[in-house]
Amino acid sequence: MSGSAGRDPVYVSRMSPNPSTLTRRREFLWGCRDELPILLGVAPFGMIYGLLAIGAGLPASISQAMSAVVFAGSAQFIAAQLIREGAPAAVVVVTVFVVNLRHALYSASVAPYLKPLNRKWKAILAYLLTDEAYAVAVTRYVRDGDRTDVSPFRHWYFLGVGLTLWVSWQCSTAVGVFVGARVPESWSLDFTLPLTFIALVFPALRSGAAVASALSAGVLAVVALALPYKLGLLLAAVVGIAVGLAVEARRS
């Protein structure tokens, strides 16, 4: 690796290469390559989503279409869950909105870098702006820093990152949907949903305020389970966020 450094920019992954040697194609392939390690975690997640959507009683076509239309892992899990429980469409839509609100932060974070692009590019990259694509793409932009000699084709890097994730998400969903239609209910595959969320919640408990937020939301969700239209989840989430903010404000 070190022997090729400086000659072939494709292999210099932790340094920003000389822009004059970077073509659109190289930027694109570089982005694809940097996203690959992330797929290890994403592909099983996509399969589990496919399984779960089928387990929730969604038809295969709708399960697959959701991966293309919504293209947001945790929101898709929650939507499948709500549909299984018979929630009204409006509650599903509002819950997806709240769960995906964090993408507004990503949008604000990459906006300065995408400023010179035309509308078509902005729309494509916004569509591809998921958690995993954002994490990799923003690392590149931050690495470039304030340099004035950056590659003019950095958006191709972003496209490579985003498309790699998109393709793997669609394929892994398809595998999950295919397998899920053949698994009997007695296997309790729907339990993979709370298990996935248990695994994801611990890294989010970084402060006392976050723990308070999680506990209050969890308890309230149980208490409010009988609320009509499955509004309990939304109410619990909003109260949990408020509790987190309040605890944080008292401590600082």
Partner: peptide
């Protein structure tokens, strides 16, 4: 606080 609140509520 969205991740801890929403995940626990589920």
């Amino acid at each position: 606080f969205v991740p801890p609140a929403v995940l626990s509520a589920i």
